[in-house]
């Protein structure tokens, strides 16, 4: 496709797909206005790309969601190796030669592994009142500390309050570890590949990425439904996906 190859333009890269993948004419990506997404092919692989103004800034919410939406839509249909947000190369020739050409066989092997699979992300958030009740019920010392603080002026009890809060934070972290383990075990038992993520909120209960055959999405949903029902009122469980397999691609793959 005709891409502006003037001095001011560079090429933004979304991900790697098999060479026979076609982009929709209305596929749009990052930029303002959103740029048309096309492919650069080399051998059996292709990069999903769009032109981008050199020197422009990137990272508006629309840019982030455009990057993710494009790759996730692709991942539901074809194997995709997602590239981290913000990758830019000088022109299409360098994409073809220095990216696709230089890593051609690795990309082919990785795309083969990704065939029929997609990533799913499981996020659980504690229901605050429920988890706090649980912690106080399990920890007499904390319950006493709480009683000691109640009724004192805020200023006078600042240090005690900090100590109480820190212990609660630690108790939640311990619960998070245990609950994450529970989910990892259940997904592994179903034959899915899992990858625990770092929590992104202090009340996160579970944050796990899972690589699963899209044909088995129903099994995954059923398992998480059961888990959500067992945790009802305690943890709000969400399932995202199918997504591109961000958590399961590595930059340097050993050649096979």
């Amino acid at each position: 496709m005709a891409t502006d190859t003037g001095e001011e333009s560079a090429v933004y890269i979304y991900g790697i797909v098999p060479a026979d993948v076609e982009t929709e004419p209305d596929a749009r990506g990052v930029g303002d206005p959103p740029a048309e997404v096309t492919t650069v092919r080399h051998g059996k692989v292709a990069a999903l790309v769009s032109p981008i103004i050199r020197g422009g800034s990137l990272g508006r919410p629309q840019d982030l969601t455009a990057h993710a939406a494009l790759l996730d839509a692709a991942a539901a249909e074809v194997p995709v190796l997602p590239v981290r947000f913000g990758a830019v190369m000088t022109d299409e020739e360098s994409v073809a030669e220095e990216l696709l050409g230089a890593h051609h066989d690795d990309f082919v092997a990785a795309l083969d592994e990704m065939e029929g699979k997609a990533e799913y992300v499981i996020k659980g958030r504690y229901v605050e009142s429920a988890v706090l009740h649980e912690i106080l019920a399990e920890n007499e010392e904390l319950a006493q500390l709480r009683e000691a603080i109640r009724g004192k002026p805020e200023d006078a009890s600042r240090n005690e309050r900090i100590a109480l809060g820190e212990q609660i934070n630690n108790a939640i972290a311990a619960k998070r570890d245990a609950d994450t383990w529970t989910v990892l075990e259940e997904l592994t038992a179903l034959g899915f590949v899992v990858n625990a993520r770092e929590p992104t909120h202090e009340e996160d209960a579970v944050h796990v990425a899972c690589l699963a055959e899209t044909a088995k999405q129903g099994d995954l949903e059923a398992a998480l439904d059961r888990r959500a029902q067992q945790w009802e009122g305690r943890v709000q469980l969400r399932l995202l996906g199918p997504l591109a397999a961000y958590d399961f691609v590595v930059t340097q793959r050993p050649g096979e």
Binding site: A10, I13, G15, I16, I52, R54, G55, G56, S57, L58, G59, R60, L64, T65, H67, A68, L71, L81, P82, V83, R84, F85, G86, A87, V88, M89, T90, S94, E98, L99, V121, R197, T200, H207, L243, A244, Y246, D247, V249, V250, T251
Partner: peptide
């Protein structure tokens, strides 16, 4: 989306070669 695409996925050399992207 932020949890996912900013620190996961393939990293390519282009990151260091082209310093045009100013992620806010």
């Amino acid at each position: 989306v932020i949890d996912t695409i900013l620190d996961k996925g393939l990293v390519i050399d282009a990151y260091v070669r082209v310093s045009l992207v100013g992620i806010e």
